[in-house]
Computed example of a mutant assay.
Amino acid sequence: MNTPLLKVENLTKHFPLSAGILDKNIPLVRAVENVSFTVSAGETLCIVGESGCGKSTIARLLMRLSEPTSGRVLIDGTDIAGLKKGSLRAWRRRMQMVFQDPYSSLNPRLTAERIIIEPVENFERLNRRQRKALATDLLRKVGMSPEMMDRLPSELSGGQRQRLGIARALALRPSLIIADEAVSALDVSVQAQILNLLLDLQQQMGIAYIVISHDLAVVQHIGHRVAVMYLGRIVELAACDALFAKPVHPYTEALIAAAPIPDPTRVRLEPPVEGEVPSPINPPSGCAFHPRCPLAVERCRIEVPRLVPTADGRFVACHVRAPLEPKPSMSIQGNPTWPHTTSVALL
Results as ranks from 00 to 15, higher is better:
residue 9 E to I: 08
residue 12 T to V: 04
residue 18 S to R: 12
residue 22 L to T: 06
residue 25 N to F: 01
residue 27 P to A: 07
residue 29 V to M: 11
residue 33 E to H: 05
residue 35 V to I: 05
residue 38 T to W: 00
residue 44 T to R: 10
residue 47 I to P: 02
residue 48 V to H: 10
residue 49 G to F: 02
residue 57 T to H: 08
residue 59 A to T: 08
residue 62 L to A: 09
residue 63 M to S: 03
residue 66 S to L: 13
residue 90 A to I: 04
residue 92 R to K: 14
residue 94 R to K: 15
residue 94 R to W: 01
residue 95 M to L: 12
residue 100 Q to E: 02
residue 109 R to A: 06
residue 114 R to A: 07
residue 117 I to C: 05
residue 121 E to K: 14
residue 122 N to H: 04
residue 125 R to Q: 12
residue 126 L to H: 12
residue 130 Q to G: 13
residue 132 K to H: 11
residue 137 D to F: 06
residue 137 D to C: 09
residue 139 L to V: 08
residue 142 V to F: 10
residue 142 V to A: 15
residue 148 M to P: 02
residue 149 M to G: 14
residue 149 M to I: 06
residue 150 D to S: 14
residue 152 L to N: 11
residue 160 Q to F: 02
residue 162 Q to I: 02
residue 163 R to H: 06
residue 163 R to G: 04
residue 166 I to R: 13
residue 168 R to V: 02
residue 171 A to F: 02
residue 174 P to C: 09
residue 176 L to D: 09
residue 177 I to F: 04
residue 184 S to A: 15
residue 187 D to I: 03
residue 188 V to Q: 15
residue 189 S to D: 06
residue 191 Q to I: 01
residue 192 A to M: 06
residue 199 L to T: 10
residue 205 M to A: 09
residue 209 Y to L: 12
residue 220 Q to I: 00
residue 224 H to V: 01
residue 226 V to N: 15
residue 228 V to Y: 11
residue 230 Y to G: 11
residue 236 E to L: 07
residue 239 A to Q: 13
residue 241 D to R: 15
residue 245 A to S: 14
residue 247 P to C: 05
residue 248 V to G: 14
residue 252 T to L: 04
residue 252 T to K: 05
residue 253 E to D: 07
residue 256 I to C: 05
residue 259 A to W: 07
residue 263 D to I: 01
residue 263 D to W: 05
residue 264 P to H: 08
residue 277 V to P: 00
residue 278 P to N: 01
residue 280 P to C: 09
residue 291 P to E: 08
residue 293 C to H: 02
residue 300 C to F: 08
residue 304 V to H: 13
residue 304 V to P: 05
residue 306 R to W: 00
residue 306 R to T: 02
residue 324 L to Y: 01
residue 325 E to R: 08
residue 329 S to P: 00
residue 333 Q to D: 08
residue 334 G to V: 00
residue 337 T to P: 01
residue 338 W to P: 02
residue 339 P to E: 07
residue 345 A to S: 14
residue 345 A to Y: 05
